[in-house]
Amino acid sequence: MSALQQYGILFALTLGSIGFVLSLYALARAIGRNRAEPGKDVPATAGSLSRDPVWVRYHARFGGYALLFLAFDMEMAFMYPWSVVYRQEGLVALLDMGVFLAILFLGLLYGWSQGALRRQ
C-alpha cells in the first residue's frame, strides 16, 4: 500500500467517524424533540441558577511549566529522526544527543532553580 493510499484511508476513517456520529444524531432526532423550557439551558451549577458568563480572563497557574514545555516540545522534533538512526550511527549519535540533551537539561535545571517549576 502506498503512503498516499494510507493517508486516504485515514481521511476516509475521519469522514466515516463523522458520518457515524451524524447518523447517531439523526436517530436521536427521530426519537424525540428538545423542549425549550425556562432555566434548562443555563449551565448547571449545583442547584443555583448562575447566569453570569464565565468567559473571562482565566488565570492559569502553570505558566512557568507551559513555557518550558514549549522548549521541550521543540526539542522532540529532533529526537524522532535521531532515534531511528541511533543504532546505525552508534556512539556518535549517543554523544551528539548527549550534548544536546545536556544543554536542555541545563535549561530545565535553570528553570527549576529560578522557581519556574511550581504553581505560580
Binding site: 442547584g47 464565565v54 473571562v56 488565570h59
Partner: peptide, 10 residues
C-alpha cells in the same frame, strides 16, 4: 485577572 463567582452547592 477577572474573577468569576461559581456556586458549589447546595
Amino acid at each position: 485577572m477577572e474573577w468569576i463567582d461559581v456556586p458549589f452547592g447546595p
